[in-house]
Design a protein around this nucleic acid. Structure first.
Lengths: 195, 195
DNA sequence: CACATCTTGAAACGATCGGTGCAAGATGTG
DNA sequence: CACATCTTGCACCGATCGTTTCAAGATGTG
């Protein structure tokens, strides 16, 4: 029934990523992965290894697809920290609004939430978060924020990013998500209202 | 080996809630539930029904335990919307810091994230979120916010609440969580920094 | 004590889980 | 064509999943 591979490896990985994206790690069964990719079990295991390896490759695939978008949005000159925050969150909003990907990404947010994920996968997720955090901090510093404000804003923007994914998954409208993102861009440069 | 129940039903439900709290719905296997509650399979099924029913009862148990805390923090008079937001998020921070509950609650945040949860459970989670939202909106109106600001702040505070749970689960420090909560309290009453 | 009621532990159910073995078939090379 | 190499579909593995069944034992009532 075969001599050379009858599928595109990169496209299959993209589809597998979308299965994890939609179902998370535990609920992404091998049957769902074979169905989503169109591959048979043998092809899936022969090409990508076992489930946890495939998940890690899906994470890598996600990073190499979307991290450049964040990098591009943050690399240019920005007039203020607020603009940096808004630009970062806009990338997330764009990704959520993308009709070619499943609704509600369970890769970035809930990867750390699924207890079934092994230590190697957890470490990879943490490294991805750390990379985005550094990316944000550099852009904030370049936009004129001091060290303390940079640390705070990077953290809060990451937090907002996570909440956008959660709210999206929970069925909140894109208008609501845009409202949350816009409010996060209003945090910079404000004194504490509490004593 | 028994004639009358050899355990406290309410305490067993509390422990079952903590198992879902720690593991989420899919990863909370019956074995983990029997181990966590100390009950046998027969007692568990005989008392609480099947797994999805037990999860719903755990959700109810969570709501009746923690929603009064939010209600209490919001019911008194507040000088400003900022204080309302801060008071609300402080309840979440306190719950996260509680040493008697597991680290990283997968009940409120990720209940909507787990595809395995049935429609009835999903609806219950949405109803809980809706109740908290209404509670917040009433307190914000009472604190002098107009309709538009109330809607925006209630949404953003809910979003921050979710992100706190996610960041907590991801291993961020309690100082980081407090920073995020404090920054959210700085949103009210600020003009948009972007054109 | 007799008897109905309830609870419990243990075994077992079918279904699904992630993963493997293997023969059949397609390909590239000689 | 002969042959080694690779891929694929299919069956199957043990383990675990949620759930049910059932007999044994403890209790409350007469």
């Amino acid at each position: 029934m075969a001599g050379r591979k009858q599928f595109d490896v990169d496209e299959a990985l993209r589809r597998a990523m979308h299965v994890f994206w939609r179902w998370g790690y535990s609920e992404a069964s091998i049957d769902r992965l074979t169905e989503g990719t169109g591959l048979g079990r043998s092809s899936l295991y022969g090409t990508f290894g076992d489930k946890s390896t495939l998940f890690r490759k899906s994470l890598q695939r996600y990073a190499q697809t979307y991290h450049p978008l964040y990098d591009q949005a943050l690399s240019g000159p920005h007039p203020s920290p607020s603009v940096v925050v808004a630009a970062y969150l806009q990338v997330t909003l764009n990704r959520i609004a993308d009709p070619t990907v499943p609704d509600g990404c369970l890769l970035t947010v809930s990867a750390t939430q699924f207890p079934a994920l092994d230590a190697e996968g957890q470490a990879m997720v943490r490294a991805m978060i750390c990379g985005l955090r550094t990316m944000l901090e550099q852009a904030l510093l370049a936009a004129g924020a001091d060290d303390q404000e940079t640390a705070e804003l990077a953290l809060c923007t990451l937090a907002t990013n996570k909440s956008l994914a959660v709210l999206s998954r929970a069925g909140f409208s894109s208008e609501d998500l845009a409202t949350v993102a816009a409010a996060a861009a209003r945090i910079p440069g404000r004194p504490h209202p509490l004593p």
